[in-house]
Design a protein around this nucleic acid. Structure first.
Lengths: 168, 168
DNA sequence: ACCGTCATGTAATCGGTTACATGATTCT
DNA sequence: AGAATCATGTAACCGATTACATGACGGT
């Protein structure tokens, strides 16, 4: 069984939080990784199920009522996570930007830039707010990831700004 | 029928090149958009087929031998492409970087940084070579996209560099 | 002739996306 | 009590990824 980035996100969150329900995972994603890696809530139901089949997590299910599920990471899961984390990667992100695609195929930069700028500024503001309200207890990993996000947004903003002035 | 980014890539390339076979599309992708938007060659067979069903392209197939297919964009296709291009988007790219994910979940930055730096530097060098050997005839869209790629790679490089020094 | 690589295509699988549903809570 | 929203889950579909195949062509 092949573990995907989604798998490691689930494993990582379970390691960090102890047991969780899919809904709790969703909550955690929302305020953290969700900012730079989109997951749909359905994935947080299907992925733990798959991981359970592979023995990376244990599933426990309520008897009555909602039949809520709770997942806990197993030793095999912890091991897989540690292995993944310990292995550096040369994979770099793609720029997969819808706006760039349009630009590539001849869209008008002056028309594209304003909404892009606005959206990037909003995202930057959000990141900065998160950073400024982050409790001391948050570990270094998320901090650095957030910092990367901030740096990236700033760069995007200045690139689109340059496009605007060069075209006016 | 819902058009995806993949659809617009195919349409855009067909508009730009006139008729093409899937293989020709693959070639075009390789040197251009492929740099910031990955497509698998199988998609360049299945996507035109789907577009043909929707009336956005016409398919012509050789009688004998390889039964090679050639696609041409239709008026409906041109229209759809123009509409898409004319509509600005507020969608901004996600950072979806495998290395960031590892960092987020506690990977050692000092171990992650060197291969990342190397990979980003290679990518930057490639972009710069493309830029410097680009014929005059290449339109502005691809030029700007390339410029965005260069700016992005530079930013990534300096971010990882900063990580390295801050940790040594 | 043979071998390697380029060219060309199909099929199966699988994860991601969308849509649908309904049970709890909270607020008015 | 009713409405709205939060919580929780399942299922269908569809595109993307992977794997499998084989035909053509250039070089030795």
């Amino acid at each position: 069984m092949q573990l995907t980035p989604t798998s490691y996100i689930v494993l990582g969150l379970l390691e960090w939080s102890g047991d969780s329900t899919p809904y709790a995972l969703k909550q955690m994603v929302a305020g953290s990784i969700g900012n730079f890696w989109t997951l749909h809530h359905a994935q947080l139901y299907s992925e733990p199920e798959r991981l359970a089949k592979g023995g990376y997590v244990n599933e426990e299910r309520e008897r009555g009522g909602r039949r809520r599920r709770t997942y806990a990471i197993t030793d095999a899961g912890l091991q897989a996570l540690a292995d993944w984390r310990g292995q550096a990667t040369e994979a770099i992100p793609e720029l997969r930007a819808p706006a760039l695609l349009k630009l590539f195929f001849g869209a008008d930069p002056a028309q594209l830039a304003p909404p892009q700028l606005e959206a990037h500024r909003l995202k930057l503001a959000e990141y900065e707010r998160i950073r400024d309200t982050m409790p001391e207890s948050v570990p270094e990993g998320p901090r650095m990831a957030l910092d990367a996000g901030i740096a990236h947004e700033r760069q995007q903003i200045s690139w689109w700004e340059a496009i605007m002035v060069s075209r006016s």
